[in-house]
Simulated assay, not measured.
Amino acid sequence: MPFPAPYDSWFPDAAFDGTYGFDEHALRRVPPVAPPTGLADTWRRWRAEARTVDAAPRTLSTTTVDGRSVSIVEHAGADGIRLRSWLVGPATEAARVGIVHSHGYGGRDAIDLARVPDDAAAIFPVARGLPTLNAGVGAPEPVEQHVLAGLGDPDRYVLGMCARDLWLAADTLLLLVGDLPLYYVGESFGGGIGALGIPWDDRFIGATLIVPSFGQYDERLAVPCLGSGEVVRAHVTEHPEAREQLRPFDASSTLGFAAIPVRVEAALWDQYVPPPGQFGVANAARDLELAVLPAGHAEYPGWDAVTADAVRHGRAHLARALRAAS
């Protein structure tokens, strides 16, 4: 079956259609998964437990990048495990906002300041288990093991732990830089983890979620993909009870509890994070700015311009959220 234009020419070697048969109209109608009974209480309990953990940050090294101080810091995760992050100071004399900036499932080997304004401080946490700073720490590194780690115990499932670790990363930023309103930026893995974690932390004034993962498992589990969702799909096929174990960790179920403005950049074609899952997350947001991308997890004609435009509008969303919170 031929792919819809322009994807037939953009991705001639693709093994399957990354639209999964959805056009934009259909994607905008994908419903979030209704939260199971007790979901909010569970996440609020985890948030309360995280407040009792001392982040106890420690600076390991500091250098200067483009006029900003950049440090590697060590701090506690939600269960007390020691994790490492990059901490970036503002380019101006004082920061007006703090950004918690997560990453994709490949981890992170360097900071990316594209979405960090000059008057922002930022922490770039690296999820437990993932490279480079936390490879194998607190979770196995290979994606096929990482995404399933602890699934049988909701208090220990790795995706929940990674989301709860974001709260400790935020603690670390505020302890080292000072009391600031917080904004979240996360892509793919980081987009989904953010949608799980930010609704329960009232220090955040806004968020940008880029091609977010872990949303709308009813759709994710129904189709193949090239990302971590394929590992989960295979596992649920062999262990049907795992579908229920995933319910507290559906980003489309949790994001609806966030009262803050949320920008979602969701793709029409994506073989790694199926678009129905991305739009399921977007459609859950109560205060949504939606940016529709031609494709995700792939480069295509005009990709540079689309990305630059997304970054520009993402910064504008942050600025509006900051003004609204002032």
Rank of each mutant, 00 (worst) to 15 (best):
A316V: 08
V137F: 00
G150I: 03
V306P: 01
T37Y: 03
C225W: 06
R84M: 09
R47N: 08
E49R: 15
H235D: 10
A305E: 14
V33A: 14
A316G: 08
A76N: 01
F22S: 05
C225G: 12
L221T: 07
D66K: 14
D23W: 07
Y217P: 02
V100C: 03
V223S: 09
P2Y: 00
P199A: 09
R28M: 09
S228L: 12
P276W: 05
I72W: 04
W167D: 06
A325E: 11
H235L: 06
A139N: 09
V177S: 06
G138R: 04
E24A: 14
T52R: 15
V177K: 04
A50T: 12
A78M: 02
P294V: 08
P181T: 10
G89W: 07
T59W: 05
P35T: 04
I81D: 12
V100G: 01
V231S: 12
F22E: 03
S61C: 11
T92K: 12
A310P: 01
A91I: 03
G98R: 01
A139H: 04
E24V: 07
A163V: 01
T64A: 13
Y300S: 06
G98W: 01
A78P: 05
D118N: 11
V262N: 00
T132G: 12
I123V: 14
A321D: 05
D13I: 08
D155A: 14
A94H: 14
L182S: 10
S252Y: 02
A40I: 13
S61F: 09
V65P: 00
Y7L: 10
D304M: 09
Q216L: 00
D171W: 10
L176E: 06
L83V: 04
A15I: 06
V126E: 03
V53E: 05
T52S: 07
A50S: 15
G160Q: 05
T208P: 00
D41P: 01
D41L: 02
R312F: 00
G38R: 01
F279E: 05
E230A: 14
R233N: 06
S188D: 09
I111Q: 05
A242E: 09
P154L: 12
P36V: 13
W269Q: 06
P142C: 08
A110S: 13
R45G: 15
T92H: 12
Q271F: 00
R312G: 05
Q216G: 13
D304S: 13
I205T: 15
G152H: 13
G129C: 10
L174G: 04
A56T: 02
H75N: 10
R115G: 02
R58H: 12
V97H: 01
D250W: 03
V143K: 11
A310K: 05
V143M: 13
R247L: 14
G106V: 06
A308H: 09
P274R: 01
A55C: 10
I260W: 00
R286N: 09
A15C: 11
V73S: 08
L175Y: 01
R286I: 07
S61E: 15
I210R: 07
L174F: 12
L322W: 11
S252W: 09
P301D: 13
H103K: 10
W269G: 02
R286L: 11
V223F: 05
R164N: 03
H297N: 14
G104S: 10
I81L: 15
R323I: 08
P261F: 10
P275Q: 10
G150T: 02
P142F: 04
L148M: 12
